[in-house]
């Protein structure tokens, strides 16, 4: 069975209506959409805006690999859409949209969560937080996790 995929990395705003339409398929019983948005604070520190950067061709390859893995794990998947925004994003903006269409909701939820979790760990995309107090720093979730793992050893 064929699975429709569509990937994009763009400076322009990304659209829920568009990814929904791309994920729409007569064999779907469910479409799960994950929308990642810019939060107004990190650990209590007020955030002004974020700046996203991507190694675009490699990030698109990673999206492709994520889709291959989803098709192996949930073989009835009909559609996988991943759109990521880069550049300057303000509070409330959508930074990423992942839509997965499947015959049943269970696999659609699982596959969508798998996609966003894997994207966050592997895709060469970075964000810099600009705080209200003028400080800015590159976010490194992966590094925090590695430090936690190391301290538990």
């Amino acid at each position: 069975m064929t699975c429709f995929t569509n990937f994009a990395i763009t400076f322009a705003p990304i659209s829920i209506a568009e990814v929904y339409q791309l994920a729409d398929h007569a064999s779907n019983g469910a479409i799960v959409i994950m929308s990642g948005t810019v939060r107004n604070q990190t650990e209590g520190k007020p955030v002004r805006y974020l700046e996203y950067q991507a190694y675009e061709p490699m990030a698109i390859n990673i999206f492709q690999q994520i889709s291959h893995q989803i098709k192996e794990k949930w073989q009835d998947t009909n559609s996988i859409i991943i759109h990521h925004r880069i550049g300057k994003l303000i509070i409330g903006d959508i930074s990423v949209l992942v839509a997965v269409g499947c015959p049943h909701r269970g696999e659609a939820f699982c596959a969508c969560q798998y996609a966003i979790d894997t994207l966050k760990h592997n895709a060469p995309i970075w964000k810099k937080e600009y705080f209200e107090d003028g400080v800015s720093s590159w976010v490194s979730i992966g590094a925090c996790e590695e430090l936690i793992i190391n301290s538990q050893k």
């Binding site: 930074s95 990423v96 966003i116 895709a123 995309i125 970075w126 590159w138 490194s140």
Partner: peptide
């Protein structure tokens, strides 16, 4: 070659 510091997409 690309140097990939800790990623933070999403």
């Amino acid at each position: 070659i690309a140097l990939i510091p800790p990623v933070s997409g999403g």
